[in-house]
Design a protein around this nucleic acid. Structure first.
Lengths: 208, 208
DNA sequence: TCAAATCTTGAGCGTTCATTCAACCATATC
DNA sequence: GATATGGTTGAATGAACGCTCAAGATTTGA
């Protein structure tokens, strides 16, 4: 009945779980290492055996977010609908459903860190960028799959970036107001914009 | 040659200047009171004579941002152009011009605080909300002034919130990538959307 | 079975944190 | 010139910070 993995794997994941949760709930600077240790049920030496510093732990948390992007964020959306345009709005709805029960109290874990540590931690910023790139990558893929349903002249990479903009900007306002209205408003305008694009492309197709 | 105002006015503004700059550059939690004191050239007793706590100082900084919103942010835009639609994009361009020279290193001072302290400081969140409301208020006014150049069916409050969404979401990505591309892309999509709305309204006017 | 390697323990390190306060100074009022 | 008021001084506070390390426990490999 020996454990199938070295015990440090369990320690590592307990630390990562606690750190990710606390960084999300309280922010990076506001979270003390001692709190992470307590919540993970681990002693300082164990943590510093695995990670040389609190900054390195943050890097590991962001690496894990990258790994979890598809299984946690994108897979449910892809399962919900096969239509590429619908997937965009399913993704935006998923975030709404996640954060509405908490009255938008936590916000996007990546976005929070982006604004808190992007300037002060040069080695962290690329990891945040990597998460955003991955996120946008899925939206770009969907927009490519939409084919000629969208105008040929449309800059699809720009639209993908705008979807992330809507998500993060809308969520920031939702957090500030503890209300969904600005988030919903932004998503509705994006819906309206994409509907106009779909209509224009449809017209272009029927005209030749 | 006696100073025309009590000396505490000067102390107060030196503290507010230093605190606002440091909160913007480093964030709230990462800024020590001792740093504010040093940069303001003030002793702890003077600060705590004016503000009972670091949190109260943050509140004062946010009050001042509210006061400065028109003279610093909106007045230059209103001076740049009288056209209400152009003003929206002049506003977005002004932020770009402010932050491009720093490679988007600092970001929006309000937005940064929104994500850092909205949850943990209940008395601060309304002040952030007040700043966002003021900002959106000007955009709403411009959209109203656009009259029937925009479709009657358009939800103008929702579009105003979306302008702020584009600004904050775009700036977040710009900070993460140290590049303007996602910001520019988001603004370009907004431009494209509003052009479609203007064209539709124009068609509606000419048809009836 | 034993030595080497790996992981865990937890008291304690030096530093920095936000904040306090008794004493001191400058001006205004009478 | 005495008194009151408001502002300033800056050393000192206890708590919390990120982190260390010698010692012990456990696992690994031969």
């Amino acid at each position: 009945m020996a454990p199938p993995v070295p015990s440090s794997t369990d320690t590592r994941s307990r630390i990562l779980d606690a750190a990710a949760r606390l960084f999300h709930e309280q922010g990076f600077n506001a979270t003390g290492v001692s709190t992470i240790l307590r919540e993970a049920g681990v002693n300082p030496g164990s943590l510093y055996n695995l990670y040389p510093s609190k900054d390195a732990l943050l890097a590991a948390v962001l690496e894990r977010y990258t790994q979890l992007l598809h299984p946690v964020v994108m897979a449910p959306v892809e399962a919900a609908t096969a239509d590429p345009i619908d997937r965009i709005f399913a993704l935006l709805k998923q975030y709404r459903d996640w954060f509405l029960p908490l009255e938008f109290r936590l916000g996007c874990p990546i976005g929070n860190l982006a604004l808190e540590v992007a300037d002060s931690h040069p080695e962290i910023r690329p990891l945040i960028q990597q998460n955003f790139d991955g996120w946008c990558g899925y939206v770009k893929k969907w927009l490519a799959e939409a084919g000629d349903r969208l105008p040929a002249s449309l800059d699809r990479d720009a639209l993908a970036a705008t979807v992330l903009t809507v998500m993060e900007g809308g969520l920031m306002q939702a957090r500030s107001s503890r209300s969904a209205v600005a988030y919903d408003a932004s998503v509705a305008q994006l819906r309206s914009y994409i509907d106009l694009l779909l209509a224009r492309a449809s017209g272009e197709r029927s005209r030749g």
